[in-house]
């Protein structure tokens, strides 16, 4: 019985396939460095425009909103090409080689890392340009925790939606239309969490938002693993 369970877990979690796929994604990204550079430039210019127009932000809500608006658009820009980048031929090859579940989970894992990196970068830029008014009372460790969990959740959901939009003809407008309503529950809780963190509230008062974020992320990953095989077949 335990042996069977072990086999089942290995089979479901698909460790080896996912690791190989994540490596493939890294290679692909490395070969298309210009795309990543484009997004980095996008982040820098967004933050710089915010700095030029606002000079100094004293209101916690404005600061949090700026960080998260930048984060959302970064995620959408970065993940728009996640299925496009590899082209039809590669996808057909993958289709014969690995299970669909491994494909989506591998992409989610890689995208979560990518988005986390980009969002950390943009947070660092925000602290550099617009950090003065905010940092005295804020609990930055807590804020960063929110950013990490939120980025993972955003990446998971947007990856899934990108797959859906890709299969439906991949118009960029469609991805935004499908993506935003789905993201709003996560965004609501993550923004609330970050604002509480910026106001310097203790962890105990913020635990619930973290729980909601976690539950939403986990349910998105599970649903994607369950439903993606239906998108993948052709």
């Amino acid at each position: 019985m335990t042996g069977l369970l072990f086999c089942f877990i290995c089979r479901v979690l698909l460790f080896r396939e996912i690791a190989a796929l994540v490596r493939k994604e890294f290679m692909l990204e490395f070969r298309q460095r210009h795309a990543l550079a484009g997004i980095v430039i996008y982040v820098i210019s967004t933050v710089f425009v915010c700095y030029l127009t606002l000079q100094r932000v004293d209101k916690v809500a404005t600061w949090g909103a700026l960080v998260w608006i930048t984060a959302i658009f970064t995620v959408f820009n970065a993940l728009m090409r996640t299925f496009q980048a590899e082209g039809q031929g590669v996808q057909l090859y993958l289709y014969t080689l690995v299970s669909a579940r491994a494909v989506i989970l591998g992409k989610m894992l890689y995208n979560a890392l990518l988005v986390l990196l980009l969002n950390t970068f943009s947070l660092a830029l925000f602290l550099l340009f617009l950090g003065q008014g905010i940092t005295e009372q804020a609990d930055m460790v807590q804020f960063f925790t929110g950013l990490v969990v939120g980025s993972i959740g955003l990446a998971a959901m947007v990856t899934f939606i990108a797959g859906l939009a890709y299969k439906a003809g991949n118009s960029p407008g469609l991805m935004a239309i499908l993506g935003f309503p789905v993201l709003i529950p996560l965004l609501l809780s993550v923004v609330r969490f970050s604002l509480h963190a910026l106001e310097g509230l203790p962890w105990s008062e913020n635990r619930f938002q973290l729980l909601v974020m976690g539950v939403l992320t986990v349910s998105a990953v599970l649903l994607a693993a369950l439903l993606f095989p239906y998108l993948w077949r052709e």
Binding site: L164, K167, L178, V182, P185, A220, L223, L231
Partner: peptide, 13 residues
């Protein structure tokens, strides 16, 4: 197929 996938996802949200 696509709309069924999206529908299930949307319902959970």
């Amino acid at each position: 197929r696509l709309s069924a996938v999206y529908n299930i996802f949307a319902f959970v949200m």
